[in-house]
Design a protein around this nucleic acid. Structure first.
Lengths: 244, 244
DNA sequence: TTATAATGCGTAGAAACTACACATTGCAAA
DNA sequence: TTTGCAATGTGTAGTTTCTACGCATTATAA
C-alpha cells in the first residue's frame, strides 16, 4: 500500500442533475466527544483525500469519485488549486484532522476537480458515512474552505457550460430538449425562450434525434436525443467573442 | 526567513508582446562538471520556485514574477496544477535538483500561473542568470515538464482571450487598434479583416479613444486608445454560446 | 369525450457578421 | 517642393444569426 502525501489532497465537487435542480454531493462530518457524547462537529464537506505517493492528480480524483459513486469513466476536470495558508486551520478543522489517524499536517493544499453525473440513476456507496445530494440553492454549513471551493467550481462549470457542450454529461444518454433547456436554465440561472432554444440546439449537428419518444409522462411525450462527442469533435470551430 | 515547502512549487509562464510576436520569458539552466568542465545540462526553463510555509500560491507567484521583472501589480492567473508522478525525475532534472542545495524532493507538484506583460518597456533583472524572451514560435529545449506547462498556459491564454478583454494587459497603456489586432492575430493564429475588427472594437464602450496620435512612425500616425477595466466591469454581460 | 399540460413548428423584424474598395495622412526620398 | 510610400480611416450591401411571438398537436387522466 502506497504512502499518502501528507500535505497534498484532491477534493471533488460532484455535480448532479435530477431534471429539476443542480445538486452537489456532500459527506457529513460528525464528531462527538467520547466521554460526554457532546457534538463537537456536525457539518458537511466535499469528498476529498490525500494523494498517494505513486499517484497523479487525475488518478486520485477518479479514485475518490469511484469510492463514493462506484462509477468509472465520469467527466472529471481539474479547475483550481487551493493553497491559502490556513485553509484547514479553523479550530473545528484542526480538531477533525487530528482525529483522522493518518497523515495529519498543518498545511494542506488541495487540487479541486469537478465532476458531472446524471444523478437520476446513480447509487451512492455510503461506506458508513452519511452522504447526500444537496441542491446548490440549499447548502448546509460546509467545513474547511469547501464553500470557496464549491463556488469556484460552480463558476467554472457555468463558464464552461457557456462555451462547450458539457451539459450532456449531466443528463442520461437519451434526453429531451426540455430537459436540456431546464439544465441550462438552472445552472446558468437564466430563462430561454423554448422555441429559440430548440432552434439553436437543433442546428447543432452533434445533438442527434432518435426515432424514440419519452415514456411514462402524463402529457405529449417528447422526442429523445443523444449527444455525439464524436460529431462534436469533428465539426467544432473556434469562436471569437470578447463580449461586451 | 520562512522555510520552503519541499514538494510544492509555483511556476510562472510570463508572456510578453512586442507589437510583433508573442514571447515567453525563460531562464537558462546550465550545469558543467566541476572537474572536466563538460556541459552536463544546457537548456531553458520557466521561472519557478518552491512556496514558503507562510505563503499562499498567489503570493508566491507574485514574488517570483517580481524577482525576475521587478514589476508589481501585474496580471497573474493560476491556470493549472501539475502533479504527474515523474514530472521532475528525468535524469537531467534529478541531477539539476540535486545541485540546488535547498529542499530537494523526489516528487514536486507545481501550480502554474501565467502572467501578461508589455515587453516593450520591461527591464529584466538577471541576478546572475541568463534570462531571455523567446517568441513562442521559436522555443529552445525546455527542462522538466515545462513544455507541457507552457502549452497548457497558451491554451488557457487563447481561450480566455476569446471571451474576456485580457489582451490589453499585453499592451502599453496607450495603444492603436492595429497593435491590438496584431496581438489577437498572433495569439490566436488567425487573420481578421481590418475594417471589421475595428468596427467590433469600436463598439466596445470600454475601449476609449484618446485625443492623441501615435508618434515616431514613418506613415500616417494612428489614433491611440486606452482600455478601461472600470467601464468593462460596469457594462459586461454574460454571453450564451455553446458554439458549434 | 373533454380538459390538461406539455410538445412541435414558423415567421417577421432586429442585430451582428462578412466581404470588399477607395480616399486620407504624415514622413521620407527625390 | 514634390512625389511615393505605407499605413490609417471610413461605408455599404448581402448574409446569417438572434429575438419575440402565436397556434396547432398529442398523449394522458378525469
Amino acid at each position: 500500500m502506497a504512502k499518502i502525501v501528507p500535505n497534498i489532497s484532491v477534493d471533488c465537487v460532484i455535480f448532479g442533475f435530477d431534471f429539476n435542480q443542480l445538486n452537489v454531493l456532500l459527506v457529513e462530518r460528525k464528531l462527538e466527544d467520547e466521554q460526554s457524547g457532546a457534538v463537537l462537529i456536525d457539518d458537511w464537506t466535499l469528498t476529498g483525500y490525500h494523494i498517494f505517493e505513486d499517484e497523479d492528480f487525475d488518478t486520485a480524483a477518479a479514485r475518490i469519485l469511484k469510492g463514493l459513486s462506484g462509477l468509472d469513466n465520469i467527466y472529471l476536470e481539474q479547475f483550481y488549486a487551493f493553497g491559502a495558508i490556513r485553509r484547514v486551520n479553523a479550530p473545528k478543522d484542526s480538531l477533525w484532522l487530528q482525529h483522522q489517524l493518518e497523515g495529519f499536517s498543518e498545511r494542506i493544499v488541495t487540487v479541486g476537480y469537478f465532476s458531472l453525473i446524471d444523478n437520476t440513476t446513480v447509487t451512492l456507496l455510503h461506506n458508513n458515512r452519511n452522504v447526500r445530494w444537496f441542491p446548490i440553492t440549499e447548502l448546509p454549513e460546509l467545513g474547511f474552505d469547501h464553500k470557496d471551493i464549491l463556488e469556484k467550481a460552480l463558476e467554472k462549470l457555468r463558464s464552461k457550460l457557456r462555451s462547450e457542450p458539457i451539459g450532456f454529461e449531466l443528463l442520461p444518454e437519451k434526453f429531451t430538449l426540455s430537459q436540456l433547456q431546464r439544465l441550462y436554465e438552472v445552472v446558468l440561472g437564466t430563462k430561454f425562450d423554448r422555441r429559440n432554444f430548440r432552434k439553436k440546439v437543433l442546428q447543432m449537428k452533434y445533438v442527434i434525434p432518435l426515432d424514440e419518444k419519452q415514456k411514462g409522462v402524463k402529457h405529449k411525450p417528447a422526442q429523445l436525443f443523444i449527444f455525439s462527442k464524436e460529431v462534436y469533435e469533428r465539426t467544432k470551430t473556434e469562436r471569437f467573442d470578447f463580449s461586451i
